Amino acid sequence: MTGIGHGLGWASFGLFLCIVAGLASGRLTRRQCSGLLAIAYAVGGLAATLMGQTIGAVFDAALAAFFAHDWWQRGGGGGTRRRLRSLRSKFTGVRRTAPASA
C-alpha cells in the first residue's frame, strides 16, 4: 500500500505547487486557493494514512479542515448553501412535550 501512498503524496505536493504558482501569477483568488488547498491536504492526509504516518495524517486533516472552512467563509459552496437551506425549509418543528393540562 505504500506505493499508492507515495503516489498520492506526490500528487498532493504537485497540486500545492500549482496553487502557489496560480496565486503568484494572479490567476487564482484566495477563495479558489483555499478550496484547492483543502483538496490537496485531504489527498495528502489520505497518503499519510496509507503509509502509516499518523502524525502527518492528523496534520494534513487539520489543514484540510482549516482551508475548507476558509473556502466556505469566503463564499465558496454557494450552491451547497442553497441546497442546505431548501432542505432545512422542508422540516417543521413538532412539539414533543405533554400538554400543560395533563
Rank of each mutant, 00 (worst) to 15 (best):
A48R: 13
L17P: 01
R96P: 02
T97Y: 07
T49V: 03
S12F: 06
R96A: 05
R74S: 03
W10V: 00
L36W: 01
Q32T: 03
S34N: 10
K90P: 01
D70P: 06
Y41F: 14
G3E: 15
I19V: 15
Q73Y: 04
G76M: 10
Q32A: 01
L84T: 00
L8H: 01
A62T: 12
R83N: 02
F16S: 09
S86N: 04
W71D: 15
I4T: 12
L63Y: 11
T2W: 10
G75I: 04
L37H: 06
R31W: 08
G14A: 14
F16L: 05
G78Q: 06
Y41A: 08
I39L: 14
A62L: 14
W72K: 10
R95H: 10
G78V: 01
R83Q: 11
A61L: 10
G45L: 10
Q32E: 15
A11Y: 06
F59Y: 13
M1T: 09
R82M: 05
T92W: 00
A100N: 12
A61F: 12
T92G: 03
Y41T: 08
A98W: 05
S12N: 08
G79V: 02
H6S: 07
V20T: 05
G14T: 07
R81N: 00
C18D: 10
I39K: 15
R88H: 10
H69V: 00
D70T: 09
W72Q: 11
G78D: 04
G3Q: 13
R95G: 02
A40F: 00
F91L: 09
F91P: 03
A98T: 05
L28S: 00
G93E: 11
A102K: 13
G52S: 11
G14R: 05
R82Q: 13
I39H: 15
L50R: 12
R83I: 01
R96E: 01
G76H: 03
L23K: 13
S89G: 04
T80Q: 14
G93H: 06
M51V: 07
L23M: 15
A48G: 06
S89N: 00
L63Q: 15
I19F: 06
V94W: 03
R81P: 01
Q53G: 07
L28R: 04
A21H: 08
Q32K: 03
T97K: 06
P99R: 15
R74Q: 14
D60T: 02
A38C: 12
S34D: 11
L36I: 00
A21G: 08
A62M: 13
A24M: 02
G78M: 01
Q73M: 10
G35K: 04
W10L: 08
L17C: 09
F91D: 03
I39C: 10
G35H: 05
A64D: 11
G45I: 09
A48K: 14
F66V: 04
Y41G: 02
T29K: 06
A64Y: 12
R27N: 09
